[in-house]
Design a protein around this nucleic acid. Sequence first.
DNA 1: TAATAACCGAGACGGTACGTCCCGTCTTTGA
DNA 2: TCAAAGACGGGACGTACCGTCTCGGTTATTA
Lengths: 193, 193, 193, 193
Amino acid sequence: MIVPNPDRRSERARRAILSAALELCVEESFARLTMEGVAKRAGVGKQTIYRWWPSKSAVLLEAIDDRAGDTLDFPDTGDLVADLRTQMIQLARTLTDPVFAASLRGLIAAAQSDADAAESLYRTLMKPRVELCAERLKKAQQAGQVRPEVAPEDLIELLYAPLYYRLLLQHRPIDEAQIGTILDLIFPSLAPA
Amino acid sequence: MIVPNPDRRSERARRAILSAALELCVEESFARLTMEGVAKRAGVGKQTIYRWWPSKSAVLLEAIDDRAGDTLDFPDTGDLVADLRTQMIQLARTLTDPVFAASLRGLIAAAQSDADAAESLYRTLMKPRVELCAERLKKAQQAGQVRPEVAPEDLIELLYAPLYYRLLLQHRPIDEAQIGTILDLIFPSLAPA
Amino acid sequence: MIVPNPDRRSERARRAILSAALELCVEESFARLTMEGVAKRAGVGKQTIYRWWPSKSAVLLEAIDDRAGDTLDFPDTGDLVADLRTQMIQLARTLTDPVFAASLRGLIAAAQSDADAAESLYRTLMKPRVELCAERLKKAQQAGQVRPEVAPEDLIELLYAPLYYRLLLQHRPIDEAQIGTILDLIFPSLAPA
Amino acid sequence: MIVPNPDRRSERARRAILSAALELCVEESFARLTMEGVAKRAGVGKQTIYRWWPSKSAVLLEAIDDRAGDTLDFPDTGDLVADLRTQMIQLARTLTDPVFAASLRGLIAAAQSDADAAESLYRTLMKPRVELCAERLKKAQQAGQVRPEVAPEDLIELLYAPLYYRLLLQHRPIDEAQIGTILDLIFPSLAPA
DNA sequence: TAATAACCGAGACGGTACGTCCCGTCTTTGA
DNA sequence: TCAAAGACGGGACGTACCGTCTCGGTTATTA
């Protein structure tokens, strides 16, 4: 496979494609999002999309990752529950933003039939944030605030999975009350004996 | 809309269609599952599918619901945690069955772009089981085993969401260890003060 | 290769496609004639064209053959030169008809890069007419009007090639004067010694 | 339109382009000959082709004209039929040369949809040779070997059209026998009464 | 017991989008 | 300043499916 020269890449086209993808994903839905529609909306040839991305989920992943930007940080005030609450509320806001919600739901949908999409979704969007959270939890364990035998990754799943559950099932809305419930139900169990 | 007469419906065709849908969903994936493929595999005209189902996700939902059969029961030995463990292990087995996993992942994917699919997926597959579990939890609350101010629906989400998280993200496998972790981390918080 | 069932073929679509092909070939040119354009003009899906014809030259060949219709006859008054003149004038009219000229020029152009197109062009349009002419010439030879050692096929090429030469080179127009010249220059040589 | 400075033109690039065009036209066909293919094969940028030629037929015309070289001469031994035979055999050899045949068939095909290509093809390749032949015929007329009222251009068409007919229809091969037939059938009519 | 519906299989239809090829133009870097 | 390289916006290719439609051909009542 011949790889195009990234130095000659048109930044204008790149931005137009990513914007068009996000817009169309919200206006329609991921399933009705088409490469042809993106090309038309972006004023770009289809080949220019295929030159730089292998699939529509790859375009959307880059678009949403660009938009998420540098929000890679995890608060550390010393109070673990307060920090988690702050961060989870921030995530809840993101997951209820129409653009982000539509994109992420689409990406997760795509991941169900496309292992590459699943892999890059996890690696790009989720893994870095999971790792930051894991570090914060380890620090709390070292400070004696959390039982040492709890694996941070397990705890992270417990805390965050209910948000994704509501994102994907859409049966109940993601909100701050949910976050309160999650923290209330889990944290009393976590203090060392 | 003209509804065909269900009395004259061919049971042979119905079964062939549902089987073909499940087979193809596993062999390929939900995204590559096509009405034409199902019709061909089932030895059936396309019209026969469209006559009885509005979409491929509707076919698959009926197929998987048929297969799940009458497993609508929730153990009640008096020991809530033991009962939940039993039931969750049963669910884990279902979610790791290739046919069920492929179908459910596809249905959830479809639900991201199709509100009807989302609604019927929840109503048909999830709601009855959620309600059974809620009843069991209420009984436990009445028996003084669980703090009364905890909403059963919230607790259910906390317990089950991590399984769906792993089903959809495919980053870690669903297994019994996970269920142990979930129960260990949540239940110490639940006993009434 | 799976062959579609001709009994179910839509005559309406067939006619619309052939008409659209002829129209577009004249309005634009064979090189600018596209399957997409024909489908659009005919109000037809592209697949419906590809189902019944392998290429645009095949469509055009059938269109022009349909239009030529049953003009498969060769006059026989007993006077060979008069009969040839009659028939050649008829051909000249055909070759100067805009629709026929554009189509035939396009078909011959296509034949230069496509052996199948060349073969079917010859077999469908030319061969039957060449054979009729050859029969007429043989009859004239039997009547002692033409030297018996002349091969009818050779004579036919001599008579008709100049018309095609002008059709394709477009440097001088095809007209009755040309036909007079051709017959005048060739026939004095043909009488038996 | 900005015309580039011919003094700075790269002769190396020009030769590479013309060679590549001829090679590809033979290996594939004129229809499958592409500017990109020529550029790649010639090791040249596409712009370098578009700078000096307007179309692929223009490239090919120059290529074949270069190759035909200075074969612009018409024998004159005093014996018209012998001279024509000599020259026509020479032409037959050219028309059966694979490179020349593929190119000329392609150029004539292109001429069917492109008036510029038709015009430059006639002017460059055909006209000079037609004129030489016409001069030779006029000389024969002055020598009383050919009826004076025959227009040389008409006679030329009669003589040469059958060769082009076989080149383009490919139904019978061009060979010396054909040339004998042509001359035998036409020349008895030409002597002055 | 014929006729007469209704569903069945099959698949042609008008249509959308796919992913690819090539067009002719434009832009960058180097000779 | 021209050349090589190739990215760009764009149009058409030939294919896969969509969801609708139109055919006979079995059934399975209803006159």
